[in-house]
């Protein structure tokens, strides 16, 4: 595990930030009611993990562009993987939970996407202060645009998943 995923050169503020946010997210995850069937919950988890990894590979790898570094080095570190497979999915699950729990009009859904993207960009700005991300040619404004796209896509995907699982349960 440690050979494939590099260990951080020093255990500093970005690792602590990832661990603290991990703890808060797990506590919130335990508290929220489970409204999705187990396999749908797993699918939502995996979707956010894949979207986070894919976005970072496209924007922050050496080709085609390298606009920011995640944690300490350009390598895939153990704490990057923790963020991909636990932090991003739980945070994303909250968004899917909100849009599934309450019936929303298209207008209120659009408002929520803008609001959630803004909140995510604000959290990213906070993580930048703890050196989780180091920008080189990127800024939080760019992230906001990417988040608007990601959470619009996530809305469509969550609705699609709900449809698939409802249809499967009726069959």
């Amino acid at each position: 595990m440690t050979i494939i995923f590099k260990l951080p050169p020093s255990f500093d503020e970005n690792e602590w930030f990832i661990l603290a946010s991990l703890f808060c997210l797990i506590v919130c995850f335990i508290k929220i009611p489970k409204i999705f069937p187990l396999n749908m919950r797993i699918s939502i988890f995996l979707f956010y993990a894949v979207i986070g990894l894919t976005a970072d590979v496209i924007i922050a790898a050496d080709y085609p562009v390298d606009l920011y570094t995640i944690t300490d080095t350009p390598y895939l570190e153990l704490f990057d993987v923790i963020a991909y497979v636990i932090n991003y999915p739980i945070y994303g699950l909250f968004f899917s939970y909100i849009i599934s729990k309450w019936k929303m009009s298209l207008l209120s859904l659009s408002f929520l996407i803008v609001l959630w993207s803004g909140l995510t960009a604000a959290l990213e700005w906070l993580s930048v202060q703890f050196n989780v991300f180091t920008y080189h040619g990127w800024d939080t404004g760019h992230s906001l645009i990417v988040y608007l796209f990601i959470f619009s896509l996530s809305t469509v995907v969550t609705k699609l998943f709900s449809y698939c699982w409802r249809k499967e349960n009726l069959a």
């Binding site: 494939i4 995923f5 590099k6 995996l46 993990a49 894949v50 990894l53 894919t54 590979v57 790898a61 350009p74 390598y75 895939l76 993987v81 991909y84 497979v85």
Partner: peptide, 13 residues
């Protein structure tokens, strides 16, 4: 996810 993490670690790390 699994293949993405594996390939990225093979390419990058």
């Amino acid at each position: 996810l699994i293949s993405g993490l594996t390939f990225n670690s093979i390419f990058t790390n």
